[in-house]
Design a protein around this nucleic acid. Structure first.
Lengths: 109, 109
DNA sequence: AAATATACCTTGCATTACAAGGTAGCGTGC
DNA sequence: GCACGCTACCTTGTAATGCAAGGTATATTT
């Protein structure tokens, strides 16, 4: 009962949150789109598809948060790798801090 | 720097999250709109205005999550009080569980 | 009577997540 | 050779939300 409402709600809940998670997934070094999809799918409550991630990655690039370069793959088509720029790193740090504040705030009712 | 991006991001982050917080604010007993605005404003990172809350409360009522009744006030115009229905309580419980799962998932990278 | 605080509501805009669909490279089995 | 599946990228259209701005009205204070 109310699965419809709850599902819709989780979709809304992912807004914004996905950006932080994707930046976080790129942070350690570099990553390509398809890889990030597979990684984030393993996290409960964070389902994500390709139609969601590619527009986000494009936006990141447009906003100067990431740099990209193509690399050929021996197991399929070329991969577009993403790396965080300084701007991207700074924004992620700010996001993480805000996230922690909100999580704490919600916990305290 | 990047305040614009960060502010926009927090706006997106509030999507969905506000619903859970508002239901939570009503849960203890009853509450009216203007009161909820003042309460949630005190939580860091959860700024909220009247133009945000009234549409949400209307939706809650339309979806059968809350019941309302008017009560006169000696200190201003009449207040519209909201109370959770059983549906509302159940949905809030489900939301809280999902929220905890996501918070845990994000913490584990 | 003017200003302030309370209390409600609506309209229009900007932004996002996602399903659905499309393109293409590489390997396996028939 | 070719059909299938997996990898890997991208675009379009839809649905849903948050919010600034504006509007209405009551009660108190100056």
């Amino acid at each position: 009962m109310d699965d419809r409402l709850h599902d819709n709600w989780t979709t809304q809940l992912r807004k914004g949150l996905l950006e932080m998670c994707i930046l976080n997934a790129i942070k350690p070094g570099r990553a390509y789109g398809y890889e990030i999809v597979r990684r984030l799918r393993q996290i409960e409550g964070l389902v994500i598809g390709e139609g969601t991630i590619y527009p986000i990655l494009s936006r990141f690039h447009r906003e100067g948060l990431v740099e990209t370069h193509l690399e050929e793959s021996s197991a399929g088509p070329a991969r577009k790798y993403y790396e965080l720029t300084d701007r991207g790193k700074k924004l992620l740090k700010k996001m993480s801090a805000t996230w922690e504040t909100i999580v704490r705030g919600v916990r305290n009712l």
